[in-house]
Write a protein that binds this DNA or RNA. Structure first.
Lengths: 275, 275
DNA sequence: GGAGCGCTGTATCGTATGTTACGTATTTTG
DNA sequence: CAAAATACGTAACATACGATACAGCGCTCC
């Protein structure tokens, strides 16, 4: 079973003529980067001519050079999605059904945050902390609890935080209260909900700033969103995991709280005294 | 100091027009693979035209598209050479707010699961999957969304799943429906809510089996509970983190689904056909 | 309500890139 | 040692790719 081009090369390098062998060795030496460049660059690096490179990829079984490159890219993509860090967490001798799920979840989080810079989060937090507008939150069938969770926390440190619940017609009517200075936080992962998309579009038309939590395939709402947070959701289960998005939400809650520190602290104290 | 294109994008995404922002988001979502493909593919994935992609890379400071691609490749190459330091987000020496939060959360999860055996989880899952009784879920001020999340999923694979919402008096009345064969899942972390404790006690008196999600200091409800899941909640933030509990909940959801596989699969299909 | 600006997509163009044909060099074999 | 077969590079070719000019549209600001 051959699963990577590198193996394929190792398998056939013995049967190759001198020129192609040099190509193979050059590719292996800085695998797979050279293969992503142009034929001319590849040939120059290997010290052979362009046609030799093409004959080389043909011998590997590819119809043409672009096809070869696509294959390399797919390989890279797969590699990047399951970071090698996995090996750093010992395979938890237990073995049971728990480990794979936990491991995948941890990977998802690392991967999600890898695509997320401090600056982005701070920007979004700043937007949420900006007290000139209101904050609305809403989610889909399985993600609405995340919206609630976030709303519950934000509502403690600032006023004008509203979770949109209930029937579609209910929240649609709330559109009238929304304007340019307001923020709408939407959670939407596969399978994306039409009702949410429609709602997002209408809100967008009113100039509302949309912060979208979605999965790596991006909900169609992304096109209306000012900020998009793409979380990894794949786990060995019948369900997708929202855990990564949950952690991003918590991180944001923390960031907003920090930015509102002065005001927020007072607010929290007041609130405590009211209980 | 900007060292990666991802950062560069995060830095300037705020100043970009809508179309280019979509390009940026698409790139970040599957960073950096899309950027290595052709302009046509990139533009199609982002849902914009080719010139918009080119304007996008121009705005990032590149003279032309190939130069942009080379830069991405260099980045990838550097990344591949030091697999240990996979983190795209540099260790944020400036005290980035993200890393410590994420690290703490990941630690919490590992620690939480370290104290949780496969057997325990399977037992709880079996209890929840046992279809002779009903399942009720409820949570506290900040944890109720977790109860909702779990309820939303369980309700798909089995009947008789109820989330207890609204006023305290509302759910207190539901006690009348609860008996020995039923399960009550409660989420309660500091500061523990008296109302929940009272409710748990009454349910316990009726012989209801209680599954408690709490923090490492254990809610007083623990004394009534048949199963206790203690999650770590400490993070460098003003708030406690429920992320570990969330992941346990997802794990349980997965386990229950698996145990109900035969029935559950049919149920899910039926449900799909109803939509 | 009108004028101006900026953003975006369509259509066209030039060119860099992959591809192929062919001639020369090198090795292999009888 | 000769002759054939294979390998390799040069050079011409075609295509697909990136780049650009331009027009339509929406938005903002008078």
């Amino acid at each position: 079973m051959i699963s990577s081009i590198a193996e394929l090369i190792a398998d056939r390098i013995g049967t190759m003529p001198a020129g192609e062998r040099r190509a193979a060795q050059t590719l292996i030496a800085s695998y797979p980067m050279i293969g992503l460049k142009t034929v001319a660059e590849f040939s120059a690096a290997a010290g052979v001519s362009s046609p030799t490179i093409l004959r080389f990829v043909a011998r590997l079984g590819f119809q043409n050079y672009p096809e070869f490159q696509s294959s390399l890219q797919d390989e890279l993509a797969a590699q990047l999605q399951s970071p090698a860090i996995r090996s750093l967490n010992p395979p938890s001798p237990g073995g049971g059904t728990v480990s794979p799920m936990l491991e995948a979840t941890l990977d998802n989080m690392r991967e999600t945050f890898r695509h997320l810079s401090d600056k982005q989060l701070e920007d979004i937090a700043a937007r949420l902390a900006d007290r000139r507008g209101k904050t609305f939150l809403i989610g889909g069938r399985f993600t609405d609890p995340l919206a609630r969770y976030m709303a519950a926390h934000l509502a403690v440190v600032q006023s004008d935080v509203f979770h949109l619940a209930g029937q579609e017609s209910m929240w649609r009517d709330r559109l009238i209260d929304m304007g340019k200075r307001d923020v709408l936080v939407i959670f939407d992962i596969r399978r994306y909900q039409d009702s949410l998309v429609r709602f997002a579009e209408k809100a967008h038309q009113r100039g509302v700033q949309i912060v979208l939590f979605t999965d790596q395939w991006l909900s169609p709402i992304a096109r209306f969103a000012r900020h998009v947070i793409a979380g990894r959701t794949a786990v060995p289960s019948a369900w997708d995991s929202s855990a990564a998005l949950f952690v991003v939400a918590e991180t944001l809650i923390g960031a907003v709280t920090r930015q509102l520190e002065a005001d927020g602290a007072r607010r929290i104290r007041e609130m405590e005294s009211l209980r």
